[in-house]
C-alpha cells in the first residue's frame, strides 16, 4: 500500500502539471482566436460596458422592456434560483406579486395573456432572455414611454427575435439587453 501511495503521489503531481498545461493552452487559444467570447461577450454603449450579452440585468421601468423576475436580483456574481416547490405558498405569493406588478405597468392586459416567463423566476436568476410573446405584450407600453410608434417598436422586437435552435430546441426569444440597447439607439435617433 505504501508503494501504491508513493506512485499515486507522483502520478497526481504529474497530472496537476498536465492540467495546468491544459489550462494555459486552452486560455491561450481562446484568447487569441475568440477574444470577444473569451472575455465575457461584453456589450458596450457609447464606449461604456453596459453588461454582458449572455447575462441578464434588471429592467423594471416603463421605458425599457422588462426582464424576468430574478431570485438573485440579477447579481451576476451570485447566481440563484428561488427553489420554491410547486406546493409552496411562497411560490404562489411570488407569482401573484409579479403578476400584479406586470398588470399595473401594462394596462389593458388580461392575466390570461401574460406569458408564464414574466411572472416566474429563472433558474440562474440571470436569465438574459424573455419569450417573443413577453416582448410583444410590452410593446404598447414601451412605445408610449419612448414616444415611438407601436409599429416601429414591434419591428424592433422582430429584428431581435432568436428562433428555436435547429427548429427544435429552446423557446423563440429575444435577448433583453440587446433589445433595450437597440431601443435606446432607436429612441435617440428619433428624439
Amino acid at each position: 500500500m505504501i508503494r501504491h501511495l508513493w506512485t499515486a503521489t507522483r502520478m497526481l503531481i504529474l497530472m496537476v502539471v498536465l492540467v495546468l498545461v491544459y489550462q494555459a493552452v486552452t486560455t491561450g487559444l481562446a484568447q487569441s482566436l475568440m477574444p470577444y467570447q473569451a472575455n465575457g461577450s461584453l456589450v458596450r454603449l457609447h464606449g461604456r460596458v453596459v453588461g454582458a450579452a449572455p447575462i441578464g440585468q434588471t429592467f423594471n421601468t416603463a421605458k425599457f422592456f422588462w426582464s424576468r423576475p430574478s431570485a438573485a436580483s440579477y447579481n451576476a456574481a451570485a447566481s440563484a434560483a428561488s427553489n420554491y416547490g410547486p406546493t409552496n405558498p411562497a411560490l404562489l405569493k411570488e407569482v401573484k406579486t409579479n403578476l400584479a406588478a406586470f398588470l399595473k405597468a401594462n394596462p389593458g392586459v388580461k392575466p390570461s395573456q401574460v406569458p408564464m416567463d414574466m411572472v416566474t423566476s429563472s433558474d440562474s436568476g440571470l436569465d438574459p432572455d424573455i419569450t417573443v410573446a413577453s416582448a410583444m405584450i410590452q410593446v404598447p407600453r414601451v412605445a408610449a414611454a419612448n414616444h415611438l410608434s407601436v409599429s416601429a417598436v414591434r419591428a424592433l422586437v422582430q429584428s431581435q427575435e432568436v428562433g428555436r435552435w435547429l427548429g427544435m430546441y429552446g423557446l423563440p426569444h429575444v435577448n433583453v439587453l440587446r433589445l433595450n440597447v437597440a431601443l435606446v439607439k432607436l429612441a435617440s435617433r428619433n428624439g
Binding site: T26, T27, L29, A30, Q31, L33, M34, Q37, A38, N39, G40, S41, L42, L45, R48, V49, V50, G51, A52, A53, P54, I55, Q57, T58, F59, N60, T61, F64, Y74, N75, A76, A77, L177, N180, V181, V184
Partner: peptide
C-alpha cells in the same frame, strides 16, 4: 473548451467585470 467559447462561454483569468447597466447602478459580472 474551444467549442464552448465559440458558443459564448468565457475563458479568462481577469477580475470580475463591473458593468454599468442601462437602468443605472453597477453590476459585478
Amino acid at each position: 473548451t474551444l467549442v464552448l467559447v465559440a458558443l459564448g462561454t468565457p475563458q479568462n483569468w481577469m477580475p470580475y467585470v463591473t458593468a454599468h447597466p442601462l437602468q443605472g447602478g453597477t453590476q459585478s459580472i
